[in-house]
Every structure is written in C-alpha cells, then in structure tokens.
Design a protein around this nucleic acid. Sequence first.
DNA 1: CATGAATGAGGGTTCATTCAT
DNA 2: GATGAATGAACCCTCATTCAT
Lengths: 191, 191, 191, 191
Amino acid sequence: MTKKGNARERILETAGRLFYENGYCGVGVNQIIEEAGTAKATFYQHFPSKEDLCVTWLDSMHEGSEGARAAILKSPEEPVEKIDQYFTDLERFLEERQFRGCPFTNTSSITEACCEPIRKKIEEHKISIRDFFRDLARQFTATDSRAKEIGDEFFLLYSGATMEAQNLRAIWPVRAARRAARERCEQEQQK
Amino acid sequence: MTKKGNARERILETAGRLFYENGYCGVGVNQIIEEAGTAKATFYQHFPSKEDLCVTWLDSMHEGSEGARAAILKSPEEPVEKIDQYFTDLERFLEERQFRGCPFTNTSSITEACCEPIRKKIEEHKISIRDFFRDLARQFTATDSRAKEIGDEFFLLYSGATMEAQNLRAIWPVRAARRAARERCEQEQQK
Amino acid sequence: MTKKGNARERILETAGRLFYENGYCGVGVNQIIEEAGTAKATFYQHFPSKEDLCVTWLDSMHEGSEGARAAILKSPEEPVEKIDQYFTDLERFLEERQFRGCPFTNTSSITEACCEPIRKKIEEHKISIRDFFRDLARQFTATDSRAKEIGDEFFLLYSGATMEAQNLRAIWPVRAARRAARERCEQEQQK
Amino acid sequence: MTKKGNARERILETAGRLFYENGYCGVGVNQIIEEAGTAKATFYQHFPSKEDLCVTWLDSMHEGSEGARAAILKSPEEPVEKIDQYFTDLERFLEERQFRGCPFTNTSSITEACCEPIRKKIEEHKISIRDFFRDLARQFTATDSRAKEIGDEFFLLYSGATMEAQNLRAIWPVRAARRAARERCEQEQQK
DNA sequence: CATGAATGAGGGTTCATTCAT
DNA sequence: GATGAATGAACCCTCATTCAT
C-alpha cells in the first residue's frame, strides 16, 4: 500500500473522474472515498465538504484548459488554422469522453442547489473562454468592437456545439461549429 | 378542501416548476407532493416513478414550444424578422425564468444516471429545434445544402446562447446570438 | 368481458394461487385485484380485509382435502395400500406445485402477525388430518390407544415430510415417510 | 448513553428476537433499529441489507444448535437415552419460546420471495440435522443403509413435531415424536 | 495524518384501506 | 354491484457529515 501522503490527490483525481462521468449529484462521498481508497474522516480532513471538493476540481480543470488556449493564441499559425485546431481538439476531447460535455456546464445545471462558490468558478471559466475567442478574433478583424462581436459568436458556437454533442450523443455539432467559425474568419479577412 | 380529480395535474405542474428551478436531482418526491398537496400514494397512482413524471413533464414542455416554432415558420414576415422574433422570445423566456436555461439541457446534464426514456425526449426536442432552424434557413438560402449549414449554425447559436445566459446569469449571449444570426441572414440574401 | 357476477370467485381463485406461490406476505391486494381483473372497491365489497380473504381461501382448501381423505378411509383396499396411496398423492401434489409445502403451515409461519381467525383454521385443518391418520390406524391396530399412537406418528411423518420437501426442495422426505409408515403398518399387523 | 462498538451486536440480537417472534416479513428495519437503539445508517453500515442480516442470524442459530447435537452424539449414554434427551431438549426449547417453531422453517415459508442466500442456509441447517439423526441411528442399527432409513425417519418425526407444536400451539406432538423414536430404537436393538 | 463507527434527514417506493360517485 | 382516485403509514435504503480514538 503505497498510498501514503497523497490521499488528497487520490481523492481529487477520483472525484474528478466520477463527477465528470456521473455528474455531481450522481456521485456520493462514499463512492469517492471507496474508489480513492481512503477513510471517511480523511476525506473531510482535506475537503470541508463535497461542494468544496467540487470547487477544487473545477479549479484544476480550469487551469489545465487555460494553458491550452494560451498556447493556441501565441502560436505562429494562421488564424483560420488556430480555429481549426481549437475545434478539432474539442472534437477529440468530446469523443474520448463519450460526449459527456463540459464539466462546468454540467455542474451548472444543478441550478439553485449549486451555490455561489461553484457558480463563481463556472463564470470565471466561461468568461475566460469568451475572452480567448475575442483575443483570437483580434488577430484577424479590423476593429476591436468587431473582434468582440466575432469572438462572442465563436464562444456561442463552441458552447452550443459542446452542449448539443452531449444532448444528441453525436459529433456533428462540433464539426458544424468549426465550419461556421472558419467561414466567418475567412469572410472577415477578405474585407 | 375539494381537491378532486385534479391531483395529477397539480403534481405535474408543481413538479415541472420545481424540476426547472432546482433540477431533477435537486427535487425530491417528498417536496413535490407536499407543495402539490397530495399524498405519496396518490403520486404513485398517477406516475409510475419520478423518472416517468420527468418524461411527462418534458413531453408537455416540448409540445408547447413546438407550436411557437411552427407559428414563426408560417408567419408572413421577412426571414430576418423571424430570426429576430425567435431570439427576442428566447430573451424574454430566459429573463422571466431568471436565466435557468433549457429544461431539456439541464436534465441532460445528469449524464449517466439520466436513462434512456429521458434521453430520448431530450434528443427529440433538440432535433426538432434544429429542424426548425433548417426550415427557417430554407426561406432565405439558395440551396438546400446551404440551408442545412446555416440552420445548424443557428441551432448552435441558440443553444450556446441559452446555456451561457444560464452559466453567466446574463442576457448578452442571447443578444449576441441574435445579432450574429441576423447578420448571416442578410449576407445570404445579398448573394 | 364476461366477468360479470363472478368477481368474488375470480378474486378468491387468484388470491389462492398467489398466496400459495408467494406466501401471504408476498402478495399484495393490488396484485390480486389486478390479476383478477377487478377494482379495488369490488375487492373490499366481497372481503372485509386481506386477512378475511385468507381465511376464506384456507377454508376452501380444507374442504377440498377432506373429501380426499374420507375417500381413502372408506375404500376397500388393504391398510398398507391406503397408506401408500396417501403418500403417493402427497408426492404428486408437492411435485406439481414445486415443493411449496402446505398452505396452512406456510401461513402459520407468519406467527404473531397471523391472528386468531387464521390460526383457528390452521388448527382445524391439522387436527382433521391427525384424526384421519388415527382413523386409518384403527383399521389395523389392536387397541384404540395404540391407534392413537400410530396415527399421531403418521401425522408427524406426513407433516415433517411436507415441510422438509419444501425446505430441501426435494422429494425424498415424502418417500422416506411412506416407507416408514408402511413398515409400521406391517409390524402392527404381524402382532 | 455509552453505546459504543456494540451496535452491531445489539442489532443482531434484537433482529433475531423479532424475526423469531414475528417472522421475517412481520418485522421492519425501522422496528429493529428502534428497539436496538441505533440509527438507520448504523444498521446499514453493519449489514448490507435486511436479507443479509437474516442470513447472519440464521447462521448464528445454526452454530449454536450444532454444538448441542455434537455433544449428544459423543455422550456415553445409551442410544435410547440420547433420543430421549434430544426430544426433551426440543420440548423445553419450544415451550420456552411459546411454540413458535423452527426459525429456519418459519423463514422458509416466505417461499419465492425468500431468495437463494437464505434458502441455502435453511438447507444447510436441515441437512445437518438429518445427518445428526443418521449418525445417531448408526449407534444402534445393524447396517448403514438401515441407519439411513431410521435416521431419516427420526428427522421427519422431529420436523413434524416442531411444526405441529407450532400449528397447534401444543406440546403433544413433541412427546409423540419422542415416544415413536424411542420405540423404534428399542425395536432395532432387539433384532 | 488517519481511522471507522455512528448519525439524522431524506431518498424513492409500496402497503392495506376508504372515500365519493 | 362496481368503480378509481385518494390516503397515511410504513417499506428498505442512501445521503453528507461528525465523532471519539
């Protein structure tokens, strides 16, 4: 049993997987600690509550995804290629996870029950993605206000694609979003 | 207390409201029957299970919304006006309900736990909306394959707008979706 | 739907079958009325309670079995043949019903919950069987007191055989009982 | 209230008493935990289910009774005395418990609902008793095959006596069984 | 730093029975 | 003579959390 000292990590990792697969409501603390191989009290020593654990998980998810977006922004590729890359990455991500959608959005849907600390993380994450798309649009639009319009549009295409891929258990929404975003990018550049 | 014969209706109405406000997982049968003012056994006389009740609720939601979409399609207005109307209606809908998003999508986020009968209703509903947008696009595009592209794009804009209005508790995503859809419509008509 | 007027009979028949197959506790009033094709209130019009229905069922079972025993007693066969016939009938009965034992005994095992009216029927039935065996023993024993001893012994063999065929889901206990009873009969006659 | 560590024991003890008095179906988990003075979750921490608790209870009953039978087999007494002792013990057991019969048999009568793990325990117990009687018979019969016949006969006498003492709420069936068994033993020894 | 026994509140579901019609 | 909607109590079980050790 070489599970000393890293109990916290094991819990976080296990919970993340389970939350994503079954949803926040679909996972019990018992299941988490059992699969993580820790004791009940150990869990509560590291996380004040299940909710706190969820916040921590979303936090770590957010940080991971932000790096990927920053890398795309900085890459020397053409804008249209960056767009392509983003949506192709999304396609792979969703397929690998069997169309289970966005962890943040899924958690959001527990609406009222899902209280402030969690809501705040979700907002942070989504605004960060929207800003990524705005930044990306700045790389091929004429004015800043136009960049905001196009960026917001891409943001909605991304969000809709992720959600409907989940709802319909199909990949076509992501491909439709990529196609639309590429077309728009090309249109802007022709102006 | 003359609560004769309408117990079923009271349960369905109450459950619909609670499911929408708190999510399927966030509402218990106990709460439903208490607010509906019926006994537990009365609940189970009308609905085989909580899951079944949810399906019935989604069904009724679907029927209501389908009528509205059919009316828009048939109206004599210009396409761009129809688009405007759809997203303006959506805006009002979400504002009135304090940005709680789409009942179907919210229910979908219970992922695995949310089993087939419910998943099927969600798919039906979403495909019906996508087809609405494709039909709408046919009214202003040159070819059928182009109508599908534009329709799917509108579908994603609608879905993203609804979801992000919920995530961010803000109305701007819906407005951004409307603006983008209008622009696209005008572009197509100019060709 | 030719189910007019014989609702009572249908309920009784259905309940009998279900009680025997699943035990008194394992059958609900809902199941009975559903399989009998009657309404709830119709049930309670014919039987004041589930318990009363059970008493009625046991009553009818008792009457049926008593005739068979009387026939054996009166038949012109040799005693040893009568014993053989009784246990062979029992063997067939249990095999046909997949070793579900004695309806009376099974009902008795609900002990305390099983209240007086039912208990009384069970006692009546069992005493009637014991008396049958005593009468049978009188046909081949020298004295009346000996007949009682042998009759009681047969009664216990029969009861044990029925019960253990059920417990062990096997037929051998009935065959062992028959063998023992025959042997005893022959011993008595040799004296 | 210092009820530490012994919750499991209290539950098992209470449940055993209640199962025996009222039958498996006649006792609810609520009643058990109330009389045991524990919380519901405590119950389920110790026993996966009510059914599982029943199996554990039957197990402990079995072990207790097996010791008693082994002691009789090993004792230096005459066979006829051993028989006498067994049935006299049974008489006391049943009288002390107000003729509530055999815990195993009573549980068996829930027929279909009573599923495999429980059925298996019942079979084990009954076969163990039958084997005891066969072993006992070996101590006074000439051949092994004869021992099996006589052993099985005693087994049925014991079973019938226990059951009918319960059905009739009387002690005479046990006494009749003892008498018959003793007689048979003496007959065998005279050969 | 880690443990496992204990908890109160609530989960969804079924029970035998009664009521107005 | 028959109906079906309505009931309160009880069913078995799981939840997130806390406690003494």
